[in-house]
Structures are given as C-alpha cells and as structure tokens.
C-alpha cells in the first residue's frame, strides 16, 4: 500500500492510502467530532458529524468513510462546518425525546457531550417527538426508542462482531426504527446471545442495562477494538 503525504488543518501528515481521513487525523492528534463512527466497526457515514472540507472540491466529505489521497488538503474546523454540525445535532434533539435530566445515560452520553461541545443551548425547530415504544422484554437489557439516534452501531456490532445479526432498521425516513429479530420483542429473538455488546456501543441511553437509575448507565467499549482486531487477524 502506497504511503502518501497530506495536510490536515495545515499540519503535514503521512498516511497509507487505505486509511480514512478520520484515522489519519486521530493519529495526528486532530479531533473530528463523530457519532455513528466507533472504532472497530465498519463505517457507514450516516450521522454526518465528521464532515470536513477538502481543498478543490465543493462537496463536504465524511472523514470516517473517505480514504486519504496524496496531496489532499483537509480542513476540519471552519465556521461553516461548525454551524452545520451544530444544526445536525439540533435536528437530533428536535427529532426524539432527549430529555437528559431523566435519562439513564445522563452525564455519560456521546450525544450530550457533542451538544455541549457545540454549544447547542436550545432548539429552534418544533419538536417532533413521535410516539415510540420501549422494549424491556429482555431479561437484562432495555431499549428506549425515544433516545435512539439511528446510528446503527447496535446493528453493526451484533452483525460484525457477535455474528448474531439481531438488530436491523425497519421503516424509512423519520419512521425508521431499530428492531430486534423480525420486529418482535427482544426476548423472543432466537439469535440474541445476551452478550450485551449492543448496549455497550450505543452512544445514548437508548440501550441500557436494566435496573439503572438516572445517570447511572456507563458504557464500556474497550472490548471492541480488541475483538475487531482478533477477527481481522483471523480472516
């Protein structure tokens, strides 16, 4: 694989051509906000938080799925990018019920952290708050659709790492919902091994361990890069 050099925020960096902008920025200590990305799973470019500007192109590119090219000049923080990222977050907060004060993940939530980082103090749009279900049928875990941001991390970890493919997305547009099995209660899924990986990777309080009170749910993701590497070596 060819080694290339490029510039991120004016800093010269070297990279392999199969690396993404996000990988290379991370190695160079440059932080790009992400939400659907999680180290160890295939990236899908869904949340758009990681968009960056690439010189010579008027299209913004998601850092998590865009491979680097020799001579690229990338800018990760501009007024425009910050404004768009903040609006994307505003969209999420207007979409479903994210009242942090009563959430099990209060204080330990990727969405909340991003909102603070981006100074999102209020939402200008009407709240959509669709009527969504809570599935607490599983012995240990619970799903609260109100907090789901449709990042598909649960879908990917269960499919790519656990190999159970319990999760999927049904419906489309704002009607999209994550589902277990053939849209049946989680407890009825024949394939769920109750490994808990989906709960750990979920960025918000949408997936949690049962019995947690407000703010008590912390997530542990150390296992993921390790397992992903093991899987990779095995192939």
């Amino acid at each position: 694989m060819a080694v290339t050099t490029l510039k991120i925020d004016g800093k010269e960096v070297s990279a392999n051509e199969d690396e993404t902008i996000l990988d290379v920025a991370f190695q160079a200590g440059i932080k790009i906000p992400t939400l659907c990305h999680i180290e160890g799973l295939t990236d899908i470019g869904a949340c758009r938080m990681c968009i960056v500007e690439v010189a010579g192109s008027n299209k913004l590119q998601p850092a998590c799925t865009t491979k680097v090219k020799d001579g690229m000049e990338i800018t990760t923080q501009t007024a425009r990018l910050k404004k768009y990222r903040k609006m994307v977050l505003e969209m999420l907060f207007s979409e479903r019920n994210h009242v942090c004060a009563v959430c099990v993940s209060n204080g330990n939530c990727d969405l909340q952290t991003l909102a603070v980082e981006h100074d999102l103090t209020h939402v200008r749009m009407p709240y959509l708050y669709p009527k969504t279900e809570i599935d607490a049928s599983h012995e240990w875990f619970a799903l609260d659709q109100n907090r789901c941001v449709l990042c598909q991390r649960c879908v990917r970890v269960c499919d790519e790492i656990e190999g159970a493919h319990v999760w999927d997305v049904s419906g489309r547009g704002v009607q999209s919902r994550v589902i277990t099995g053939l849209n049946e209660p989680w407890a009825d899924s024949d394939t769920c091994t109750s490994c808990g990986k989906c709960v750990q990777v979920c960025p918000t309080g949408a997936l949690s361990n049962k019995g947690k009170a407000t703010g008590e749910m912390t997530k542990h993701r150390e296992f993921l890069p390790y397992l992903a590497q093991r899987r990779h070596d095995h192939k």
């Binding site: 869904a46 949340c47 758009r48 994307v88 969209m91 207007s94 979409e95 009407p126 547009g173």
Partner: peptide, 22 residues
C-alpha cells in the same frame, strides 16, 4: 422527499421534516 427519505443520515431524515413543517 419526507416520504422517500431513507432515514439513514440525519440532515435528510429530520431536515426534510423540519423544512416541511416550516
């Protein structure tokens, strides 16, 4: 567009609904 958005990315999934509301 609201009807046909696939819902994968946030700007289109929610943005189209908010534009329609406005």
């Amino acid at each position: 567009c609201v009807e046909e958005s696939c819902g994968k990315c946030i700007p289109c999934r929610v943005g189209t609904v908010q534009m329609l509301n406005l």
